[in-house]
Design a binder for these strands. Structure first.
Lengths: 154, 154
DNA sequence: AGTAAAAACGAATAATTATTCATCCTTCAC
DNA sequence: GTGAAGGATGAATAATTATTCGTTTTTACT
């Protein structure tokens, strides 16, 4: 692994652990981890990693890495809640009128264990082959939902 | 509405329409829209709006919409094309299954001159009172569509 | 190993952005 | 109206970040 790559990994690690407000601070943080680099290099790394200074601190761009799948994207933005009823049925909630579009995208994903979906106006029923499949699908959907809201996993 | 608020709205509008790379450019953009403000004020507005310089251009943080209207947001992401048939009918195209949701949001906007809408699966008919109303609505919708794609106005 | 090309680097500096400070409005109480 | 308090503002400037330029290091190939 090139030294550039190592440094960039450490940068990502660093900004997720500490609050780093300036590139000068970043230089110091890296130095304390045994990596020497100039502010100029940090600036280039930041551009390469496409980091962003949001709210006074350097961070990884929030929405970008969420998903690159257009179907998932369509679901993510409009999934309000994911619940279940028994071992074989998930119940999804969307804004009014959106259930149809979300269900269609969901069908398009062809997730394992999903037997079928029915959409109302703001509600979708998802039938699953097993409780275990239900859990997997729920987790997947929840992660999509979270990603679109920039929530962190508790 | 305070002049601060107006300016900030215009800023959001501007960054969703054009590529703005520096606060100096922003000052120029606002001036061309009849708003005078110094770079200092822009800097303060950017902090207040929590904008972010990503990839060399100022943008609303991913996940937070460029438009602050949730209805508009729902339309923006899923409007593929806007056409017309005669003086009183607009024809909108959406991804499959999305027409209903978009039409509902469109109704919610209560745009002047819109008489009614009908949604199919991926198509919406919008009846307008006049050709002039049609133009206005088309322009509005086109600007929404563009904003969600970060296109620039040619 | 030897070498040409490409990539990475830091120092210096240019460019950009945030803050300070003095001033100007606006609002509100009297 | 007058005055005090709190925002909003711009000019100047401090602080931060991006780029240039000359050099060194790595890579790829023979």
């Amino acid at each position: 692994m090139s030294s550039v790559d190592t440094r960039r990994r450490v940068i990502l690690e660093a900004i997720s652990r500490q609050r780093i407000e300036t590139q000068k601070q970043m230089v110091a943080a890296l130095r304390s981890l045994g990596i020497d680099a100039s502010q100029a290099s940090i600036s280039r790394d930041i551009a390469a990693l496409r980091l962003v200074k949001a709210d006074g601190r350097w961070t990884a761009p929030a929405g970008l890495p969420a998903t690159s799948n257009p179907l998932e994207e369509r679901i993510a933005g409009r999934l309000l809640a994911v619940g279940s009823a028994g071992d074989h049925l998930l119940v999804l909630t969307t804004p009014p009128g959106e259930a149809g579009g979300v269900a269609l995208a969901l069908d398009g994903l062809e997730l394992d264990g999903v037997v079928g979906t029915v959409a109302g106006d703001d509600t979708i029923f998802v039938a699953t082959v097993s409780a275990e499949a239900g859990s997997r699908v729920t987790e997947k959907l929840e992660s999509l939902r979270r990603s679109s809201r920039n929530e962190s996993v508790p």
